[in-house]
Structure formats: C-alpha cells, structure tokens
Nucleic acid binder design. Structure first.
Lengths: 114, 114
DNA sequence: TTCTTATACTACGATAGACATAGCAATGAC
DNA sequence: GTCATTGCTATGTCTATCGTAGTATAAGAA
C-alpha cells in the first residue's frame, strides 16, 4: 500500500485543484506536477481525471478558463482561474473534510488491528 | 454541510463494516444502526449501499455469511463474519487512511480559506 | 381493527467520478 | 532520427453508490 487508491480521494480532486488555483491561475500540466510534488509523489493524478475535473469545475461555475496562445513551446494552453463560487465551494469542502476525518477515524483502529 | 456526502466516504464503507465485524459477527440492520450511532448521526449508510458492500466483501473473501433462521421476530437474518483475509484487508486500509489523510491535508487550508 | 413503525432484506436500473487507451502536435536533447 | 517532455482532446469502460420499489413479519398506536 505505497500509493493511494483513487476511490478514497474521489470527490477531493476538485478540492485539490481549487487549492492550487487559489492565488493564481494555472493550467493542466502545471497543476498535475504540483499535485505530484506537494504530495511527495504519493498521489499522481491521471491526465483524464484532471481534465475532466476542469470541465466539471467550469460547468459548476467554480473556475473560468482563458487561453494563452503564446507559450514557451508555441503550444496552446488553457488557464483556469478560481471564481468566488469556487472559493466558497472550497471552504465548504474544508469543513466537510474535518467532519469526514472525524467520522472515518471512529472506524480506524489506532494500532492498525494488531 | 451537516452530513457527509457518500462520494467522500466511498471506498471506506467496506472498512467501516469490517471494523464492526471485528469482534463478533453481525448483520445488515444492526451494522447500519451501529454506523449511525458511532458516527453520531453524521453518517447514515444507505441500505442498498450496505447490502451491496456485503456481497462485494464476501466475493472478495473478506467475510463469510451464515443464516440464522430463528430471530426475535421470526425473520431470516444473514450474519457476516470477518475472515483472516478481511482482517488483513482492514489493516491495509488503516495504513492507507493514514497516508490519504496526510496527502489530503496538504491541500486543505487550516483557516478554511478565509 | 386498521395503520404505522420497526425489522430485514432483495431486485433493478441510473449516475458520475475515475480510468484505460489512443491520438495529435511542437520542441529540445541525445 | 528517435525519444522525452509538454499540453491537451476523444471515446468508451468500470464500479461504488444511489433511487425506487417490492416483500414479509410483528408490535404497538389509533
């Protein structure tokens, strides 16, 4: 069990992305690398998961996208910017995380079941 | 956000059930009530979720079922008993939880994003 | 006596987030 | 000239959870 199964983090990918967009807009590839780095390689988001998360976040009004045509490699990038609704949603997820943690830990043996 | 959405707990229902079967066999309705009580009403597992979890757990060899024909109300109950593989799986999930918690918390603002 | 509540499930189809696989296109390193 | 890196998009599959419904018994309220 050296990495995290996606079923557990399910529902928190959106939250992680919003966290990384908090101070400045960013784009897929960069977000992906920052998740990997911040989690110390313990969690690596799949590309399809990431881009489908962006689509969902935008549909829900939590982010707004804009294109930058000029990049280092001449490639098109789609940047995402968090909205006020996105910040509100993030706050709710933080509160929910606290609650979730409390509940789950009632079912976790501290000694790991020895 | 007074209760927990199931997408977050997804993948941990099995773990919660195994925890409750640790010391003695039990059955659906009882497990359901114990989850509700232990979580202080913060999490109420849906019946269909619970029974499909039992089926999955048995298919994976983590529990074994047996029937008790005589019950208080004359109704049939299916009891489930945790297996050694089930205990092992539970231990792995405990370890995974620790890791998951560490990772997720890197993306959670302590001030809740104020 | 009829109705509701609690008990104890089973069946079936829908939903949605995550994933596998594949493809496209440009640049720089070797 | 091939490979790795960058930066996406398309399409279909998987599966845990959920919504709805049905079945059946017993106790207690109306």
């Amino acid at each position: 069990m050296s990495s995290i199964s996606s079923d557990i983090i399910r529902g928190y990918n959106d939250t992680m992305i919003l966290y990384l967009l908090w101070d400045a807009p960013s784009y897929g590839y960069e977000i992906s690398k920052r998740i990997k780095n911040l989690s110390e390689e313990k969690y690596v988001i799949k590309e399809t998961t990431l881009y489908s998360a962006f689509t969902r976040l935008e549909k829900n009004g939590f982010v707004e996208s804009f294109s930058e045509n000029v990049t280092i490699n001449g490639k098109r990038r789609t940047y995402y910017k968090i909205t006020e609704q996105g910040r509100q949603y993030y706050r709710e997820k933080c509160a929910e995380w606290t609650l979730t943690k409390e509940v789950v830990e009632k079912f976790i043996k501290q000694d790991g079941g020895i």
